[in-house]
Design a protein around this nucleic acid. Structure first.
Lengths: 127, 127
DNA sequence: CCTATATTTAACCATATGGTTAAATATCAA
DNA sequence: TTGATATTTAACCATATGGTTAAATATAGG
């Protein structure tokens, strides 16, 4: 019954599944920042942000160098690439389905239902 | 204090943050399948899989058509694209950092430490 | 109508998550 | 040393998550 969420990809996606954390990553894409700087835009407490940072760090998305008492955080690209790669692996499949959808919207419902030639279905706008 | 995890992107990443669910998506990339067929490879109970499917459905990654008593599930590409797009948006940033890393590994630690010319660091294999 | 099959719902449980406040730790600077 | 600043740790809380088993629902087919 015990949950054991250990594989790196799960951990990475989990880390990305929070808007605050994604915003932090977005901020970090502009350049490194201290914990305080990262926390500043948010209503939540510093410890809350600290936890978010630990999650990102645990997922390998972020690393830090301590410079005296200030921790400078920066993006760590590898984990993000792993996530991107997973999605990319299935890209052709869902891409194909998007194409089908596009064709559907373009030509109207399914060739097969076309057999009955004069269907009373409402016409699609010809975008 | 109430958690309210509502934005679609968070929901999608959350859905991807589980190996069983990712495996289900992978299976579905090969073609549509019934709930029973999807559940078959796993040790867990049918209700557990049913819940996973509901999560994927809620994230917009999967849709189903009921065909009598059997629910045929298929990939729903749009949400996946949204996730891919989010990652892609930052691609150039972490790509840049990967380049830095690559250069680092290729040329040995930092130009600045190069000043001392004959370092005793072990040489990198010349891949 | 009866029964088997496909799937979901309900109730429950343990652990994880995301937040809080208060206290601890470490460093800077006077 | 003393105090301010940067950050984490600890303890706590409510809700979410991922699983279970047992029961409910819906359809298929003799």
């Amino acid at each position: 019954m015990v949950k054991y969420q250990n594989d790196p990809l799960s951990t990475t996606f989990q880390a990305l599944a929070d808007p605050t954390r994604r915003a932090i990553l977005a901020r970090l894409a502009l350049g490194e920042a201290s914990v305080g700087e990262l926390a500043e835009p948010y209503a939540m407490s510093l410890p809350a942000v600290s936890k978010h940072l630990k999650v990102l760090e645990g997922a390998g998305l972020l690393a830090r160098e301590r410079d005296g008492r200030v921790h400078r955080c920066h993006l760590e690209p590898q984990a993000m690439r792993a996530a991107a790669d997973w999605i990319a692996e299935y890209r052709r499949f869902w891409e194909a389905q998007l194409d089908q959808l596009a064709r559907y919207l373009e030509r109207g419902p399914a060739p097969l239902s076309r057999i009955k030639e004069n269907s009373d279905e409402p016409g699609e706008p010809e975008t």
